[in-house]
């Protein structure tokens, strides 16, 4: 079975358009959940800073629940559980909703820990100048917290890309699902999966390089750590 390269290459070429659309789906899903997860994380951070103790409690519960629950269980709950209530969502919608709930919780946790490293007197200075609660958040808290969290947030994008393989378990035909099809046409599983691993590795490397560029751009001059 170590041979079979010609057959594998032929099938690969034949199925290349499908594999490529799968790759596009993977990238699309990764981009969408990275964005919604970031926006969700910002909203959750805003709520954790709420002046109402009930809102703060609920937000904390949200974060620990979704960080504690395996993503795959959440996806299965949405995909195989909700139909019991007559709610049938497409694999794509399930993936977006499930990932967003999960990723937002993680991002909120990173942002909250960055918030704890902020100079509180700066925020007090903002209030003293007459800025509203929301203005202090938007003008002072968020720009700093986001900058400090760039490494954690970009790391989350890498995790999102890698975890997007889970979507294939709920019948979403992304890249890994297409590789699966390729493997099952010629039974050359090792070659097909190794190819997939290589592609993911290259994509991760691209994100790492992009993240370094972003990090350099957002650094605040004269600020250590």
């Amino acid at each position: 079975m170590t041979g079979g390269w010609p057959a594998f290459c032929r099938d690969l070429l034949e199925q290349f358009p499908l594999i490529f659309t799968g790759l596009v789906q993977t990238l699309r899903l990764t981009a969408i959940i990275s964005l919604t997860g970031l926006l969700g994380g910002i909203v959750v951070l805003y709520l954790t800073l709420s002046r109402s103790p009930i809102v703060r409690r609920l937000t904390q519960a949200y974060i620990s629940f979704f960080i504690g629950m395996p993503l795959i269980v959440l996806l299965f709950l949405l995909y195989y559980g909700l139909p019991q209530w007559g709610i049938r969502l497409s694999p794509f919608v399930v993936a977006v909703v499930g990932f967003t709930l999960n990723v937002a919780a993680y991002n909120a946790a990173y942002l909250t820990s960055a918030y704890n490293g902020l100079e509180q007197t700066e925020l007090e200075a903002g209030r003293a100048q007459g800025f509203s609660h929301r203005q202090v958040f938007a003008l002072l808290t968020l720009p700093q917290v986001l900058r400090m969290s760039v490494p954690a947030l970009t790391n989350q994008v890498i995790l999102n890309l890698k975890d997007s393989t889970l979507a294939f378990l709920i019948q979403y035909t992304e890249f890994f699902a297409r590789i699966q099809e390729l493997a099952s046409t010629n039974f050359q599983f090792f070659k097909a999966y190794a190819l997939a691993a290589l592609v993911y590795l290259l994509l991760v490397s691209a994100i790492v390089l992009a993240a370094r560029a972003v990090e350099k751009r957002v650094i605040i001059p004269g600020l250590l750590g």
């Binding site: 890498i158 890698k162 975890d163 393989t165 889970l166 294939f168 378990l169 890994f176 999966y193 997939a196 691993a197 993911y200 590795l201 991760v204 490397s205």
Partner: peptide, 8 residues
């Protein structure tokens, strides 16, 4: 750290 668990 670059390969998804499921793929490996």
């Amino acid at each position: 750290r670059g390969i998804p668990v499921l793929v490996l």
